[in-house]
Computed example of a mutant assay.
Amino acid sequence: MIPPLITLEEHFFSHAASTSPTISSQYSEQFKHIPSLSDKLTDLSTLRLSQMDAGRVSFQIISHAPGSLTQSECRSANDQLSSAIKDHPDRFAGFAVLPVSDPDPGASSAAELVRCVTQLGFVGALIDNHTSTGGYYDGESFFDLWKAASDLDVPVYLHPTWPTQTQLSTLYTGNYPSSATKSISASAFGWHSDVATHVLRLVASGLFDRLPNLKIVIGHMGEMIPFMLSRIQQLSVRWGKHARPFREVWDRNIWITTSGNWSVDPMATILRNTDPKHILYSVDYPFAKNEDGLEFMRELQKSGLVTQEQLELIAYRNAESLFGVKAVKRYE
C-alpha cells in the first residue's frame, strides 16, 4: 500500500504569466508536446484536484512556474494563489514567487516573502535559479532574502529557469535544430547543471556560515549533485576557509525532491549518500504526470531500496515536518 503523498514542485500560471508573450515563447516546446498544458497551468481548482486524485496526491504545495515577474506581478500572483488555497485548505498550500530580478532584489524579495508567510500563511518560496540577466544569489545584494527565510524558518526552493541569451549562444547553440537547443538548455540537462552550480556558489560564498539554519530545497533528484557528491566534497576544501564544510551543509541545510525523474536508478545512489529525512516526493505537475509519479513510488516500494518507514518519510512525513502541512489519508 502506497502511503499518503505530498507534492511540492507543482506549478501554476498567474494571470500575468498567462498573458505574457515572453513567457509564452519560453514555453513553446512544452505547449507543443504536453496536452492541455495551458489549461492545467491556469487552473487552481477542479481540474487540478482531479489530476491530484489520478495520482493519489493527498496534498499539494503550489508554486508559480518559472519566468521573470515584476514586484507587482509577484504580489498579484501570490494573492491569486492565496485565494485558491482558502478555497481548498485541506488540499493546497503555497510557495511565494519573489521579484528576484527587481533592481533591489534582496530587500524587495525579503519583504514579499515576509508578507506571504506572515499574512498569507505560505510555507516558503520557490524562486527562479537566476535573475533575468543571469545573476546568481551568492552576493550581498541577496543576503536580505536569505536572512528573511532563515529568520522565518521557511525553506527556499531553488528552481531551474530559462537560460539567458548569452548562456544559450555560448553553451547550447550548435549544429542541431532550435528545438534541441531549447530542450538541452532547459529540462533535458542545462537547467539541472545550472542549479547544481548555483548551490556550490552559495556554499563557496560562506552563506551557510552566516546563516547556519537556512533551508534550501532543490528538485529533480538533487540536480546532479548526489552523483558528484564525493568529488565535490573532496575538492571543496579549495573554496576558501569556511566554518562548515560542504558535506555538513549538504547533510543539514539541503533537501532534495524526486520531481519529474521517474527512475529508481538515481534513488539507489541518493540513498547511499543522503539522509532519507532530506528526500521528498514531488511530481513537477503539470510538466510531469501525477500518475507517472505514483507508478514511480510503487516501483520504489517494490525495489527493496527502502524500508516502509523510509518510503513514508519520502512520501509525506518529511514534507509534514519541513513545511508544517498535513497529508490526510484519502485513498485505499
Results as ranks from 00 to 15, higher is better:
residue 220 H to Q: 12
residue 220 H to S: 07
residue 220 H to W: 02
residue 221 M to F: 10
residue 222 G to V: 07
residue 222 G to E: 02
residue 223 E to D: 13
residue 223 E to K: 04
residue 224 M to G: 00
residue 225 I to L: 15
residue 227 F to E: 00
residue 227 F to M: 06
residue 228 M to D: 10
residue 229 L to Q: 06
residue 230 S to H: 07
residue 231 R to A: 11
residue 232 I to A: 08
residue 233 Q to I: 12
residue 233 Q to Y: 05
residue 234 Q to E: 15
residue 235 L to G: 08
residue 235 L to F: 14
residue 236 S to I: 02
residue 236 S to H: 10
residue 236 S to Y: 05
residue 237 V to Y: 12
residue 237 V to D: 10
residue 240 G to W: 08
residue 240 G to V: 04
residue 241 K to L: 11
residue 241 K to Y: 09
residue 242 H to N: 09
residue 242 H to S: 13
residue 243 A to E: 13
residue 244 R to Q: 14
residue 245 P to T: 07
residue 245 P to L: 11
residue 246 F to L: 14
residue 246 F to V: 09
residue 248 E to S: 15
residue 249 V to C: 07
residue 249 V to M: 05
residue 250 W to T: 07
residue 251 D to V: 05
residue 251 D to N: 14
residue 253 N to E: 01
residue 254 I to C: 07
residue 255 W to N: 03
residue 255 W to D: 01
residue 255 W to P: 00
residue 256 I to L: 15
residue 256 I to V: 13
residue 257 T to G: 01
residue 260 G to Y: 04
residue 260 G to S: 11
residue 261 N to P: 00
residue 261 N to W: 04
residue 261 N to E: 07
residue 263 S to N: 14
residue 263 S to A: 14
residue 264 V to M: 07
residue 264 V to G: 06
residue 265 D to K: 13
residue 266 P to V: 07
residue 269 T to R: 04
residue 270 I to C: 03
residue 271 L to I: 11
residue 272 R to Y: 01
residue 272 R to T: 14
residue 272 R to L: 14
residue 273 N to V: 15
residue 273 N to E: 10
residue 273 N to L: 11
residue 273 N to Q: 09
residue 274 T to G: 02
residue 275 D to P: 05
